[in-house]
């Protein structure tokens, strides 16, 4: 299945958000997809699937828009 993925983690190293199409097996979770995208989510992540707040165990589906953002909290 194909999923449109966008990661904002790249901005933490000076880049722009990265957009790519992932070709995944049915049943792939958000956590597995982030590993494929080489996202370091050791401190967690904001995970949005079609805009819906989700978590690492959420399962992706064909045609989903999958957005991950770093959980920034400093001030």
């Amino acid at each position: 299945m194909k999923v449109q993925a966008k990661s904002f983690f790249s901005v933490l190293s000076g880049g722009k958000p990265v957009v790519r199409t992932l070709d995944l097996q049915e049943g792939t979770t958000a956590e597995e997809a982030m590993k494929i995208m080489k996202v370091d989510f050791s401190d967690g992540a904001i995970i949005l699937i079609n805009g819906r707040p989700s978590n690492e165990k959420s399962v992706l589906s064909e045609g989903d828009l999958f957005v991950v953002m770093p959980p920034v909290s400093a001030a």
């Binding site: 933490l12 959980p71 920034v72 001030a75």
Partner: peptide
Amino acid sequence: GLLGDYGQLTTILPGRTARLRDLFTRPDN
């Protein structure tokens, strides 16, 4: 919130928007 030279902001309206708790599911920093 900020980290390095990056930041994010959003507006929470109780009962009308997603909560911070919904967005940040594993905050441990």
